[in-house]
Amino acid sequence: MDGKENVNSGPLRSGTVEILLVEDNPGDVRLTKEAFKECGHVFRLHVVDDGVKAMLFLRRQAPYAAAPTPHMVLLDLNLPKKDGKTVLAEIKKDKDLRRIPVIILTTSKAEEDILRTYDLHANCYLTKPVELEKFITMIRSLEEFWFSFVHILNEKE
């Protein structure tokens, strides 16, 4: 990355929103895809199923050389190869990546996970509801807040 960035003149209201979903459970991937389909923005969900692939994607290393810089990362915590906390720590220590909002999306309600990830500068922490309806309501709230009101940085093409 060359570090040149482009800030949306206003919050992101149009155009495709690129999201990197780091999730190893195929059922949860499907649920998340369904929930985003219900939303008003156009989303492109890129899915990787372990922490090593997540870092390769974000750093545009093979096989992800052509990957876009995502507007947001949705990060599960329990992942094969490299776990979510390690991925989070690496993103937030990297001066090119740390501005990307990282939203923890996990089934864990453990206090130590919540505290530890906020200490590592997670942008926020969400737990996955089991029922689809509730999951959709949550994703809608996320969509409305982050993509209608929040200013997010995205890299120049």
């Binding site: 919540i114 505290l115 926020c124 922490y125 969400l126 737990t127 709230s141 996320l142 807040f145 982050w146």
Partner: peptide, 13 residues
Amino acid sequence: SIENFWLTFVKLP
């Protein structure tokens, strides 16, 4: 929207 997202869905520390 802050209320709906941060106070309702987000697990605060």
